[in-house]
């Protein structure tokens, strides 16, 4: 990022946007568009839908500029808008019957003891290693989660929305978000376990 960009004042940009300044609109798209596309891509896993979601998000943002109160950063505001645009696309997809997440959850004997002994995992490798094979395993495992659980995991753990924000965007209760998040993490843990448990041959 060049120095003049870093110093560009967000309030000044906002004022110019509201005044309809063409350069300000170009700047908004240039500064935030790429990051918004990355968010839409990882949620939708489909390039065409991701581009559409970004375009729709900007359209909503342009219309909403007058209402933007500047209490959050522009980037945070645009992030919420593109997340919501991607969610709307997901809702319009032909919905497949969801597979149950139950087989990926831990099971217990009648006395409350776990049916298997949980061991320790290997220490996580350096974050740079995550660019490789393990990162791909994590991503493909997340893709295998039932959609309603995958969505909650993405909103909470990847997009870092809080429970209330995720509940509002999904139109479900905070409690439903918590239950789905816990199950999604448990199921992902089960899928990663064979690759990460200690003493693996």
């Amino acid at each position: 990022m060049r120095i003049e960009e870093a110093e560009f004042d967000e309030q000044e940009l906002l004022a110019k946007l509201r005044a309809g300044d063409d350069r300000a609109y170009e700047r908004l798209v240039a500064e935030h568009g790429g990051r918004m596309l990355a968010v839409a891509r990882r949620m939708l896993r489909n390039e065409e839908e991701a581009r559409d979601a970004v375009q729709e998000a900007f359209l909503l943002a342009f219309r909403g500029l007058a209402r933007f109160e500047g209490q959050s950063r522009l980037g945070t505001w645009l992030h919420r808008i593109v997340v919501n645009a991607a969610l709307m696309k997901m809702r319009h997809r032909r919905s497949r019957p969801e597979e149950s997440i139950e087989p990926l959850l831990p099971t217990f004997h009648a006395d409350g003891h776990s049916t298997i002994e949980f061991g320790q995992w290997q220490e996580l490798p350096d974050e740079r290693l995550l660019r490789g094979e393990l990162a791909e395993l994590v991503r493909s495992s997340i893709d295998r989660l039932p959609e309603s659980h995958r969505t909650v995991l993405l909103l909470r753990d990847v997009e870092e929305l809080d429970t209330a924000e995720a509940a509002e965007l999904l139109g479900v209760s905070a409690n439903a978000v918590k239950i789905r998040l816990h199950r999604a993490r448990q199921a992902l843990r089960t899928m990663l376990d064979p690759a990460l448990k200690r003493g693996r041959a």
Partner: peptide, 13 residues
């Protein structure tokens, strides 16, 4: 391992 899962998910995505 649950905490490691959360962290791995975040980093990988």
């Amino acid at each position: 391992s649950y905490l490691q899962t959360v962290r791995l998910g975040r980093i990988a995505m």
